[in-house]
Design a protein around this nucleic acid. Structure first.
Lengths: 232, 232
DNA sequence: GCGGCAAAAATCGTATACAATTTCAGAGAC
DNA sequence: GTCTCTGAAATTGTATACGATTTTTGCCGC
């Protein structure tokens, strides 16, 4: 028997990817039996994987009612994005003007991969774009910051899948290039608003339009009742 | 049978407290059987509790070798403290000049409890002092920031227990009062260095003296060998 | 048809069983 | 005395069993 927690990791990674790629959509039930059957593992292992995902808030476990893919509210989304803004700010403050040549090369390679996928229409470009931010965090040399960023990026992806518009990363590639350029030259004055606007464009715009749509939706739903009340 | 994860929480909370109060010291082995016996629960439940603690990095789980109370290295300690500095900075930036009267009252009560415990020589004053920072984070209204702070504060306590000097919170009470005063008046210029120095005094000083001691320890250990080499 | 209710099915929470791995103690070689 | 090796004990990782809870189903009165 494979002893180590290798199995847990496999299921964890599989589910995580499925969630982030929106194969498993928010709200989907995740019964332990079914998943275990799929992966050829017992509930014990599946349970552990689900608990790991819950600790990243990618799945929601409610006592006695099982796990579902997390479905963050707009409020939670806004909280997440505001914290992410702050943490990304910390990251670039630590990196600005301090990148080694090797790091710059790594970042350029990352952007390269992103651009290629984007040009060829492959959907991985989203993952590459997200990874860019994770790589930045890792370059701070702070395991904690990297850990936080990993969670933040993961949850951001989930939320964008929920509320976002399809065209949410149109100009990501160029913006990432600009970010690296400023990081290299240490141009903090330009870097700071660049990152802020970049994230704002990708994240907040998505949920703001979602919020607008939601309001409109409610208004539409209420319209008939209002009319009835008026004519009564 | 009690169905809900209530049992897990009980064991989790119990172990967490024991670790933070240094009843269980870093490095201590935490066998699932023994703990289960103590709490009257099966390994399944204990395991889950240990995994929760591991996700906060209060215990260290190594595959097939069981769990031990975490024993962060000096490097990890420095990383933690630098991130904590940054996160505390985010917290006060969000709160400065925005506290409601109710919040101020809550903070004063917290400091009151801390002072009383301190004056009466009860060791809970450490917990109260730590809680002060957690309460601040919760007041931002950001569940994420609060979560991060909870982890950071917990791990800080663990590390201080490991490396800290006993007199580490001598002036905590007064400093906390000053912090609240600045938060109320919105005196950012004074607040920012106040918080920074407060944390620096409590956290970094502890590990810096530890690092110094450690170097001295190594030198002492090497002294005989050096002497032998010299006389050879 | 259609809400309400009871029984069945599905699913979860915990305990226990067993195999795999690690740890430890003691015997034997040197 | 110290080192190494071997087998037993301790401990973990996973599977399975079973009671408890939730969800679904099917039946009934209306």
């Amino acid at each position: 028997m494979k002893q180590r927690g290798e199995r847990v990791d496999a299921i964890y990674a599989g589910l995580r990817l499925a969630i982030l790629e929106q194969v498993l959509q928010p709200g989907t039930k995740l019964p332990e039996d079914t998943i275990g059957e799929q992966f050829g593992a017992s509930r014990t292992v599946v349970r552990r994987a689900l608990e790991l995902l819950a600790s990243e808030e990618l799945v929601d476990i409610r006592p006695n009612r099982g796990a579902t893919v997390a479905k963050p509210s707009l409020e939670e989304a806004r909280d997440l994005f505001s914290v992410r803004q702050d943490v990304e700010h910390l990251v670039i403050r630590r990196l600005c003007g301090r990148l080694t040549p090797a790091q710059v090369k790594r970042l350029e390679a990352q952007i390269e991969a992103e651009e290629r996928a984007h040009r060829e229409g492959r959907p991985e470009y989203i993952r590459h774009a997200a990874e860019f931010h994770l790589v930045l965090a890792e370059m701070t040399g702070s395991p904690l910051l990297a850990r936080y960023m990993r969670q933040l990026v993961g949850r951001s992806a989930l939320i964008l899948g929920l509320y976002g518009r399809p065209r949410w990363t149109d100009c990501s590639v160029q913006e990432h290039r600009d970010l690296v350029a400023c990081l290299v030259t240490g141009d903090w004055a330009r870097l700071e608003p660049l990152m802020h606007d970049h994230l704002e464009a990708v994240l907040s715009r998505a949920i703001d339009t979602a919020a607008h749509d939601k309001d409109r939706g409610i208004r539409d739903l209420l319209a008939p009742y209002a009319e009835a009340a008026r004519s009564a």
